[in-house]
Design a protein around this nucleic acid. Structure first.
Ligand code: FES
Ligand code: FES
Lengths: 140, 140
DNA sequence: AAATACTTGACTATTTTAGTCGGGTATATA
DNA sequence: TATATACCCGACTAAAATAGTCAAGTATTT
């Protein structure tokens, strides 16, 4: 099980942003420099974040991205979802009645993996962007 | 985050085995047929399981593999470890003081991913092979 | 002797990941 | 109004990981 860079960078970038005053646009260039993430990659990531109502953009000079909501109200699960990054533990299609090998029934371990998936999703569901900030930053 | 087939098949195969009397060798051919997993792939998986003291082998006709311990005492974490399949959520090297981009310090999200890794490993640590068997099978 | 079943390293096709590229458009400021 | 800044967005690609397969065995039972 591995977490991919897209999700990791997305959370990293958003955490970086949330250190600044809410209405102050933060440019991807700055995030790129501070967090050492490729600017072009960030653009791809933020395109998705914007489409999914997590950030909004301000174009032109001194523009950048702004969090659309308070970090307290942004769950990690939303960020993952925005990037199409879901937890996948089973080999079968959820909707289908068939098992992971196309056979008739769900396999003997299906329930276990389902449980694991719910367990992991639970982590993301209960974590908010604000949880990443240290006490001093949170006061700001 | 995705679970790979190696781990999934390993648990599936071991769960299949644990339905049979403990001292009765179960051949990979049978598991392959019952669970629709490639025999050659299973061989690769069981090679590792054997090396890691989870199963032992019985060669020759009517041979097969036998669980080395009671399913009650086989943790999923051991199975994963046997297959070199570890949970990896961070971008940096654990030992190193450096961050995930080779920069000086650990990044702002490092603690979060560490927490996630511990959280997931915890699931595997607390699950045993016996937990996969239904009540009737457990009596057996 | 023959069949069964494990042994073990190497190899390969496919898929996924981690980005890059290119050619835009909108806005602020000098 | 020219220019620089910064977002916009689809398409592309190299590299790594995954999911197996292949080959050439060895040990044991019947
Ligand atoms: S994981 Fe769903 S049937 Fe195997
Ligand atoms: S995840 Fe460890 S430094 Fe970024």
């Amino acid at each position: 099980m591995k977490l991919n860079t897209k999700s990791r960078y997305a959370v990293m970038a958003l955490a970086d942003m949330s250190k600044f005053p809410l209405n102050n646009p933060v440019s991807l260039r700055d995030i790129s420099l501070r967090q050492s993430i490729s600017l072009l990659y960030l653009e791809q990531i933020f395109f998705r974040l914007k489409k999914n109502d997590i950030v909004k953009s301000v174009r032109g000079t001194n523009g950048g991205y702004v969090l659309k909501r308070d970090p307290k109200n942004i769950k990690l699960s939303e960020i993952f979802k925005a990037l199409d990054q879901r937890v996948k533990t089973v080999g079968c299609k959820k909707e289908s009645k068939k098992g992971c090998n196309g056979k008739s029934a769900k396999c003997i371990t299906h329930e276990l993996w389902d449980e694991l998936e719910i367990y992991i999703n639970n982590f993301f569901e209960n974590k908010k962007l604000s949880d990443l900030l240290s006490t001093e930053e949170r006061i700001n």
